[in-house]
Design a protein around this nucleic acid. Structure first.
Length: 570
DNA sequence: GCCGTTTTCGGCCCGACTGTTTTCAGTCG
């Protein structure tokens, strides 16, 4: 039973209770708990097994701690079973349809006996839904359209892809008469690995045609709502975009409000309520009097907080840390002094060692390590002992020849199924360090996958674990592994973790990054570049690291060459 | 059901838009 499954049980329960019109605050309590569990780095199971006190977790009290224990031990949530006997569980799927909430789902169930998406589709097609109280033709059409178009799938796009869309749209909006400030807020600004929609914020002169022109942008496929301060469209790419227009005096409050996260904002407003203030997107108010709102810093200051970096605004401890003055000073792109994972034309890359090194020097890097694949990765022409030695000789020669950059000798060596490394120690010992990775046998059971990686770390020549989860965002789940055990094992053995900066990987995740930092691990933020163009992805790795609370000191490749070398020694 | 620098009860974030109404409920973010 994984955290995600436990969280799903609570969310389903919350949906059904909402349909049953239960106490809204009780429902919220289940949802808050689901959120805590879903984003917690350690598994509930291991905490229960170790007899730890779950009420220490936010939003988990005595009752929910007991329920979690029961779920871990039996796989079931008795209260959910009970509620299901009255209210079919599939109704919670209906809640996912745009425009359908608990009230309407309840009406659909009571009046038309609709208990599944299929039922809903049939009734909508036969025109039965428009006849219901509170429904009409438009609502019926929307429901049908939504079922057909999305069929329940949540559509989020990778941050890098959202960035491409945002660039064009923002340039267009900036060019409109009367537009002053413009920012993309929401999860985009928090630099979340995937983005569900774009929240664009502008301040504009009163007579600016920005709302009308927004709807006329040539990538707009559909205008879903249109008001004076807010409009929503769907682009041809499928991405939803909201535009909000606000007065200049509210810009900071609006930026804070629309950057979120929702959970972060709720906490901030709770602080405001305690002080007798009200915060909304127009400002901070003491009664009717606006006391702040022009800048985010002003807004945070009214509740006694420093301006919190957008990447931290997830309600994962940043409020508490802010109040205590203990927020991390997050790493920045300019802190990076080199890249510790890249490939060359010898295996599956596109450029030579020299081309890669010159490009790295151009970026101002002090060092670059070369990490081609090892022999097991045959599709990438992985290196055997002999070819690796040839490469090492080439690096020696280039280091003699090139000024201003040092090429480090390394490899991305495969972790074999039995936990051995793919090349003999005798040759690995000649390297400055190793980057070790799992590239096959993703389907091993959790225990064996975990053992495999930990056994590999037993080898004193193991330095950095590359893309620790193996996931590809939107394409493939990572392998099943007990990341907590892997992290603890790495700490004991003096190994480090990679934050892989490829937009499709971003692996470690933000949550594991933060947990690993708390354990005291160090990180390499690396692009895994297969060409000189790949180096530009470093900033996405920095985004992820910042979301994981990393400071420059937590990251190996912010160090000078000399300090890096000593840090890499086990 | 959770939570506490107003602590064991009584609170729990807040506003905009749509579609259905005829003054507002439901939904969303």
């Amino acid at each position: 039973m994984h955290n995600a499954e436990i969280a799903d049980l609570f969310d389903t329960l919350a949906d059904l209770l909402e349909i049953e019109d239960a106490n809204p605050f009780r429902i919220r309590a289940y949802r808050n708990a689901a959120l805590t569990i879903r984003q917690y780095a350690r598994s509930m199971k291991s905490m229960v097994d170790a007899g730890e006190d779950l009420t220490e977790l936010p939003a988990i009290g005595h009752d929910l701690a007991e329920k979690i224990k029961i779920i871990v031990n039996t796989g079931k949530l008795p209260l959910l079973e009970e509620v299901r006997s009255r209210t079919p569980a599939a109704l919670s799927d209906l809640m996912a349809i745009e425009g359908l909430g608990p009230k309407r789902v309840k009406i659909l169930y009571k009046a038309l006996k609709i208990r599944s998406l299929d039922d809903l589709k049939r009734k909508a097609k036969s025109g039965k839904i428009r006849e219901l109280e509170g429904f009409g033709e438009k609502t019926e059409a929307h429901i049908l359209e939504h079922i057909e178009r999305y069929s329940g799938k949540e559509k989020r796009v990778r941050l890098a892809a959202a960035e491409e869309v945002a660039e064009g749209l923002c340039a267009y909006l900036r060019g409109i008469d009367g537009v002053k400030e413009l920012a993309v807020a929401g999860s985009f600004r928090r630099r979340k690995e995937t983005v569900g929609d774009l929240d664009i914020l502008v301040t504009a002169r009163k007579d600016s045609p920005v709302m009308r022109r927004f709807a006329e942008f040539d990538e707009v496929a559909e205008v879903t709502s249109r008001g004076n301060t807010r409009s929503s469209v769907v682009l041809r790419s499928g991405l939803h975009v909201d535009l909000r227009v606000l007065p200049q005096v509210s810009y900071g409050a609006a930026l804070q409000y629309f950057t979120g996260s929702r959970e972060h904002n709720i906490e901030v407003r709770r602080l405001a309520v305690k002080k007798g203030y009200k915060i909304n997107e127009y400002g901070v108010f003491d009664g009717d009097k606006r006391i702040a709102g022009k800048t985010e810093k002003e807004v945070y200051a009214t509740v006694g907080l420093p301006c919190i970096e957008p990447e931290l605004r997830e309600n994962r401890g940043e409020i508490e840390a802010g109040l205590k003055g203990k927020l991390p000073k997050l790493i920045e792109l300019k802190d990076i002094r080199g890249d510790l994972h890249c490939h060359t034309i010898v295996t599956d890359g596109r450029n030579s060692i020299e081309e890669m090194a010159l490009a790295a020097r151009e970026l101002g890097y002090e060092y670059l390590s070369i990490n081609d694949h090892s022999r097991h990765v045959t599709v990438a022409k992985g290196l055997d002992e002999k070819r690796l030695r040839q490469q090492l000789a080439e690096i020696d020669a280039l280091n003699q020849e090139l000024d201003g950059i040092t090429i480090l000798k390394s490899i991305e060596v495969d972790i074999l199924e039995d936990g051995k490394l793919d090349l003999p120690d005798s040759v690995l010992r000649e390297l400055d360090f190793t980057v070790c990775a799992v590239h096959y046998k993703f389907n091993l059971p959790r225990d064996r996958q975990t053992e495999r990686i930990i056994r590999a770390m037993d080898n004193p020549l193991f330095t950095i674990l590359a893309h620790p989860s193996g996931r590809l965002i939107d394409e493939r789940e990572g392998y099943d592994v007990d990341m907590e055990r892997v992290m603890l094992a790495a700490k004991e053995r003096g190994c480090h973790l990679e934050v892989n900066a490829q937009p499709a990987r971003l692996d470690l995740t933000d949550i594991h990054c933060k947990a690993a930092r708390e354990i005291g691990l160090k990180f390499s933020i690396a692009t895994d570049s297969h060409s000189i163009a790949g180096f530009a992805n470093m900033r996405f790795g920095i985004d992820q690291a910042r979301r994981g609370w990393l400071e420059a000191a937590d990251v190996l490749n912010t160090r000078s060459l000399k300090k890096l070398k000593s840090a890499l020694r086990r």
